[in-house]
Design a protein around this nucleic acid. Structure first.
Lengths: 254, 254
DNA sequence: GCCTAGGTCCCGTCC
DNA sequence: GGACGGGGCCTAGGC
């Protein structure tokens, strides 16, 4: 862990110098201050003056967080290029990127507190109850869905997207399976129907569509029946979490 | 702005006391530290030891940010209830909520830096180039879509979701319009078709479906044609940003 | 609470 | 780069 530096109530000039240095040294930076935010890009936005926390990450990510809510009120994704200058006694922190062309401008009228960090972290999250785990589970034990079912391919490509599981039943029918980790609405039924349409356009006969999820809304159930599709209840599995070691962690142990 | 407090390399006991106090006083808190994270809820997850920034907001939001990426690696949404204790010389910060039942446990092995803030901010973001602005624009000037079109209702309810715009053309046909602020794929075509199905099930005749967006993928274009729907190119409008004043800002001026 | 859709969604993956 | 789907999505608006 590198040194952590903090400034309290610094002048605009000091703030600018501090941010510049943090960017150069690839540090993670937090700035608490009274600021206004302008965004031009996929949309245009303006956020009037207020006290917020801005986070600048070494990968170019920029986040402006208000005191409420999970999501940042303004942001710039990884890969953006930050720059900073003092203008009219204010700190102007810009984060720009191309494709798409986007500019986030944070004008800091008053810096309350700023800190730079050098974090060491190569760990990766492992997650359970995922759709991909349902896919593996069913591939291994297709009888969970139906006796006699054979899975032929996972992630089979169509012109309209990838089919989660493609198989054949004991009667020789083609079976298209769409998996969802949680309760589904009409959208999931459409997705399944779209894949079926693709094969029907190609002249396939005897196609069954099965939507697999823990539950379904009444409207989606009605649509499943109207379109002669099927729904099967299944919870996403909870497998043992694997703990992955990364290069960064390995280095730490040296 | 209330006082900002910072601790550098505090003991677990000091950290726990500091966090407890920040929660009680409804402050926004950042903690830089070496931690592992356990999550149980809609999914299950585990993140091994590493150095991260944890943010605890006064509304119960909890965010764990690694040095890369826009999204927090672990989090808890607003309304979650935080609690903290020292255990085995480690700080255990929990954030729990009900419906759904979820628990986030951040075990801090080493606190590097922690700061509490009291932020004043009642400002709201104004955004341009939104779908809702396309809706208003077309409602005002339906000829943008087609000469003789009359808009009858916005956000009209169906059993399968809300129609962006419902109208009638110069020939007396019912027109269902689906708006998108950016390039669309097959999903948007399905959404439009679903609303049409609803009215066809109800016995309506002469229904046209129009998808409006700046552009469309080739596959979606094919599907539009196959299903005898229409696509019209339109960019989301850029209207004057309005600057909304909120109670919080008003108070600041007193 | 459930249902549905929008989003500067982000993010991964495969072409 | 475009295209497409998944997500602990989050968030807003109805009912």
């Amino acid at each position: 862990m590198g040194k952590i530096n903090t400034l309290e109530k610094p002048t605009p000039e000091k703030t600018t110098r501090f941010i510049k240095n943090a960017i150069k040294k690839s540090k993670l930076l937090t700035i608490a201050g009274k600021c206004e935010v302008d965004y031009q890009g996929r949309a245009d936005g303006y956020l009037p003056l207020g006290e917020r926390i801005t986070i600048l990450k070494p990968d170019g990510t920029t986040l402006v967080h208000q005191k409420n809510n999970s999501d940042p009120i303004n942001w710039q994704p990884p890969g953006s290029r930050p720059s900073v200058k003092t203008q009219n006694k204010k700190v102007e922190l810009k984060s720009e990127r191309t494709s798409p062309n986007e500019t986030l401008t944070i004008t800091i009228h008053e810096t309350l507190h700023t800190t730079s960090y050098n974090l060491t972290d190569g760990a990766q999250l492992t997650l359970n109850k995922q759709e991909s785990q349902m896919q593996k589970q069913i591939t291994k034990n297709p009888e969970i869905i139906e006796e006699g079912l054979r899975i032929i391919e996972a992630e089979r490509k169509t012109g309209y997207g990838r089919i989660d599981l493609f198989g054949r039943d004991s009667q020789g029918n083609n079976v298209i399976i769409e998996l969802k980790r949680k309760r589904v609405g009409p959208k999931a039924v459409d997705q399944l129907q779209r894949y079926i349409d693709y094969y029907q356009e190609k002249g396939y006969k005897n196609i069954r569509g099965i939507l697999v999820s823990p539950s379904i809304t009444p409207n989606a159930q009605k649509r499943i029946e109207d379109q002669k599709l099927e729904h099967i209840k299944l919870e996403p599995p909870k497998t043992k979490p694997q703990r992955i070691k990364t290069l960064d962690q390995f280095k730490n142990q040296q």
